[in-house]
Amino acid sequence: MHTEQFSYHRAESVKHAVELLETSDDARILAGGQGLIPLMKKRELTPDALVDITQIDELRGIERTDDTIRIGGLSTHREIADSALLKETAPVVPRTVAHITGGQQVHNVATIGGNIARAHPGYDYEGALLSTGSQIVVSGPAGKQRVPVSEFVRGPCSTTLAETQLVTSIEIPVLSGDRRGGYAKKKEPASGNAIVGVATDLLFDDDQSTLVKSARIAVNGLQGCAVRLDATENRLEGKQLTPDRLEAAADDASSSLDSSAVLDNKKASAEYRLCLLEPQVQKSIRQAVGERTLYSQT
C-alpha cells in the first residue's frame, strides 16, 4: 500500500509547527502516525503536507505544576501507562491506557495528543480526560488556549481544533486526598476500540475512607462524544459508599443520558450499548474503589 505523495516538514518548535501549518492549504500534523498513516494508506486522507511534531521537546514530559498535572501532547500511551506521577495523582488515566489495544508496538509511539485530536468515538482517552476535568491546551497563530475536553470534542472525529492549531498538552487538575481511578471497557473484537468504556475518578480522604468526596464518571463509545453520568455521580458524591449504594449508582447510569444520542451501528445496537452500561459502570467503580472495605448500611 502506498499513500499519495506529500511533502514532509519537521517542526522544531511549537511556533515553527504553527508556521508550517499556516503555509500549506492542506497540511496535517504527524505524531505517532497510528491513526493517520492507516487512513493515508487507504487514500482516505490525502494531505499535501505533513508536519512532523515529534522532535518538539516542549511537547514532551509529564510533570506537576502547582495544582495541575501537565501531560505533554506527545506523551505516548506507554509513557502515560507507566507514569508513577499519574498513577498517584490521576490514576484513571493510566488505567484507561492499559485498555488501549494494538499492543506495545502502538503504545510505544501513539500519543495522547493524536488520540484526542482524532476524537474517534471508539477511542478511550476522552472519557478519562472528561472524568478528570481536564483541559486541552491548544496553540495556534493566536497563541495558547485552554479548552475543556467537553468543548474540545464536537462529535465523532470532530473537534474545535483549527487547521493551524495543535494540541500541546493536557492539564489535569490536582485534587488533594486519596484519588482513585477505574476503567472498564467492552471491546469490539476486530478493531479493539470501545463499544462502551467507563472511566471513574473518585476522591476519598485516605485509603481507608469510604466517604466519596467527589465522583466523576464518564462514558465513551456510547455516544458520539464522551458524556458524564450525572445520575451515577450524584448517587455517590458526598455519600458513604456501601455495596448497595454502589449498585444503585450503576443501575442509574442511563437515567441522566439522552438515549436518543446513543450510537446504533454494526458494532452494537443502541439497546445493547445501554445494556452493557450498567455492568461496565459497576466494574469501573469497583476497580476505583479497590480493596477498601465497604460496610452495608443498617
Binding site: G33, Q34, I37, G103, Q104, V106
Partner: peptide
C-alpha cells in the same frame, strides 16, 4: 522499542 514498520514513514 517494538514498532509496526508498516505504520511508520
Amino acid at each position: 522499542k517494538s514498532v509496526k514498520s508498516c505504520t511508520r514513514f
